Amino acid sequence: MCRIAILEQFNLFGSGIKSILEDADQFNVVILADSVNKLLAGKGIEKPDVIIFDIIHDDNSGIKVLKRINRTFSGVPVLLIVSNHYADCFEEYIRLGVKGFIFHNSSGKELIKAIKKLKNGEEYFAMKVWDIFRSTIRARKAKAKNITSNKLTEREITVLKLFTKGLSYKEIGVDLNISPRTVETHKRNILAKLKIRSTADMIKYAYRNNILA
């Protein structure tokens, strides 16, 4: 019996994943947590063979959470539930030790297949992941050619305008159909180009230069 830990912010989705696995009669969900603190606290119950983490509902692309999981559950493979919006984070997820991706619209059958792969010490990266990697790399190269060192790009101006409205990384990401991690990257670029240090400085710059949403 494969022991599973599930980290899912919304109980309804977590219960749905648990139901799929228990119906398969091959898995035992030993931890069902709606926060990383509850997941880590569950270590004393029974060590899981695989951890499933729904990254889509995390406020910061899951990077900090994954680092905490790695420290507490060293060696336990992590399967992420992702969407295309998080494609720019895939490489970092892998660097943090993630062993598999499954998309939010995948079937229960694929979920089970992915878990079995990870339980057996293998990885699970569907062909769709490699397609996204290729398109992301192409887009990154194209963007690098167009970036200038002394002025903001149209996307950076858009991000700056949204910051003046008081939106969070996640809210801006939803508005622009990008991940919070990408929003953070845009912010770093804006700060570097404008030679300023904080969000407050960004907003001051926007007001002084009439760059308002």
Rank of each mutant, 00 (worst) to 15 (best):
V183C: 10
C89T: 08
H104C: 08
K38L: 09
A142H: 10
S135E: 10
R134W: 00
E171V: 06
L40V: 13
T148M: 03
E171W: 00
D59T: 15
E184V: 12
I94A: 02
K38V: 12
E46T: 15
R3P: 03
R68H: 00
F103N: 13
V29R: 10
A139Q: 14
F27S: 15
G44K: 15
V159P: 08
L191M: 07
F90H: 12
V30K: 13
K119M: 00
I102C: 04
A114V: 10
P48C: 13
V78M: 02
V98W: 02
I102M: 07
I56C: 11
P77V: 10
E156I: 10
E123A: 05
L32S: 10
D49A: 04
F73C: 14
L66H: 02
E123M: 06
E154P: 07
I45A: 07
F13L: 08
I52H: 04
N189C: 09
N11C: 08
D201W: 02
L118I: 11
F133M: 07
G166L: 04
K128I: 09
F125Y: 02
D23A: 13
I102G: 08
Y86G: 06
K170C: 00
A87V: 08
I6R: 02
I211Y: 03
T148H: 06
N177A: 12
F90R: 10
L39R: 10
I157P: 09
N210K: 14
L80G: 11
I147G: 04
I190H: 11
N210I: 05
A87R: 11
V30E: 05
I56Y: 02
T164V: 13
K116M: 03
G16M: 05
E46F: 03
F53L: 02
D201V: 10
K109Q: 08
L118M: 05
D201E: 11
C89K: 01
